[in-house]
Amino acid sequence: MSQRKTIDARGAFCPGPLMEVIAALKLIEIGDEVEVWSTDQGTVKDLPIWVDKVGHKLIETNECDGYWSLVVEKTK
């Protein structure tokens, strides 16, 4: 069973949601997931670009009540 770690990065201006995701991915096993909550619309644009460049997998993008939730699976 894969594990999912959730980061509540709503209102996190610095270092910001994507940097939190990158740091969190370093600490989990391949196949596990990181879910990030972000109020920054930039994350919705940047995170998929980065995930694509590195080769991880974007599993979900959901618009919630005033924030976005994105889930990334670590693939390598």
Binding site: F13, C14, P15, G16, L18, I22, G42, D46, I49, W50
Partner: peptide, 10 residues
């Protein structure tokens, strides 16, 4: 820099 701009703070 790790993300798509030059600093975490926009």
């Amino acid at each position: 820099y790790p993300i798509g701009r030059l600093h975490g703070l926009e």
